[in-house]
Simulated assay, not measured.
Amino acid sequence: MAEDPSFLPKDGFVLKLPKKSSLVLRMVVLLFVMVCAVYICSICLKQIGVSPNYGFLNVEVFERPCPEPNIEPWDIPFVHYPKPKTYNRDECSCHPVRYFAILSMQRSGSGWFETLLNNHTNISSNGEIFSVKDRRANVSTIFETLDKVYNLDWLSSASKNECTSAVGFKWMLNQGLMKHHEEIVEYFKTRGVSAIFLFRKNLLRRMISVLANSYDRDAKLLNGTHKSHTHSAKEAEILAGYKPMINTTLLINELRQIQEMTLKALAYFNTTRHILVYYEDVVKNLTRLDDVQEFLKVPKRKLKSRQVKIHGGSLSKHVQNWEEVMTTLKGTNFENFLHQEF
């Protein structure tokens, strides 16, 4: 006879859980507590302004150094790798740059000379930047301007699309250069700036050009416009039509003062790396520009300029009182100026 299930003891219906179930439950509880703890900690960190780092690596990128240029040891201070603040040099970042300054005087051919240099794809000469008085107010403003130029942050029409190999500008002797020559010489030597002296041999012809240019500032002979340089023979002819009157009483003294200033400049900057170029030598023989390109360590190119000379030929046709000038200079150290063509 089968047993009646209703008469079975109550304990027969109690299922005992295995011991493993309690272990799993404990693990779940522990995991929940840990998650809560992490969450609470992250909230606290955010409130005190500390951002947790969730396992991301901070990778610091180092710039690849530029290869050493193949130059002589003495030339190393004159090779630079500027890093402009206004733009990124990108593919030109490892292209070495040399710094220069054209030291000259007004009406000495520096404008024409600079256009020749700027005709080179790798040379940028930024004009007469210290003609603005504020830039030469004191040594500090001078240095600030120089730093901007040599850091390639001075943007002008001379800026090139090609990689710049030499950067500089024109600096007239009377634009703070002589006044602060000691500090500027030290700057040139510290920063590795090379000086290009450009002077005229014939100071009388320069004087005539200065007087004529000064007259045109007010007269504005070219359709009411003053031009220091011309790009056509017609414009040059119009400007050359004015013949200045030279004060012969002061003539010799003024020529001597200009001569002395030139010699002083050469003496002041004698300890810098420099080259001396005369305007007349370049006019007679453009191969003199090869020496300048070699000095700047740029590839040699045939350089051209669109500027047209204003006062060409004999000086006798450019001065009102020529006979008086001849009489004054005859028998002096300046007599040769009367006959030089350039």
Rank of each mutant, 00 (worst) to 15 (best):
Ser6Leu: 15
Phe7Val: 13
Arg26Pro: 02
Phe32Gln: 10
Val38Cys: 12
Cys41His: 11
Ile43Ser: 07
Lys46Ile: 11
Gln47Glu: 13
Val50Leu: 08
Asn53Asp: 14
Asn53Ala: 10
Glu60Gly: 03
Glu72Pro: 11
Val79Gly: 07
Lys85Thr: 14
Ser93Met: 10
Ser93Ile: 10
His95Gln: 10
His95Pro: 00
Gly109Pro: 03
Ser110Tyr: 03
Phe113Asn: 03
Leu117Asp: 02
Asn118Thr: 06
Asn119Arg: 02
Thr121Ala: 06
Ser125Gln: 01
Asn126Trp: 05
Asn126Lys: 13
Asn126His: 15
Glu128Cys: 06
Ile129Phe: 04
Ser131Thr: 13
Ser131Arg: 12
Ala137Met: 09
Asn138Thr: 01
Glu162Gly: 13
Thr164Ala: 10
Lys170Arg: 14
His181Ala: 06
Glu186His: 11
Thr190Tyr: 09
Ala195Cys: 11
Arg206Ser: 08
Asn213Glu: 07
Ala219Arg: 08
Lys220Asp: 08
Thr225Ile: 11
Ser228Tyr: 05
Glu235Asn: 07
Ala236Pro: 01
Glu237Arg: 06
Pro244His: 01
Leu250Gln: 15
Leu250Asp: 15
Ala265Tyr: 00
Asn270Lys: 15
Asn285Ala: 06
Leu296Asp: 00
Lys300Ile: 02
Gly312Arg: 05
Gly313Tyr: 02
Val319Thr: 05
Lys330Cys: 04
Asn333Val: 09
Leu338Cys: 05
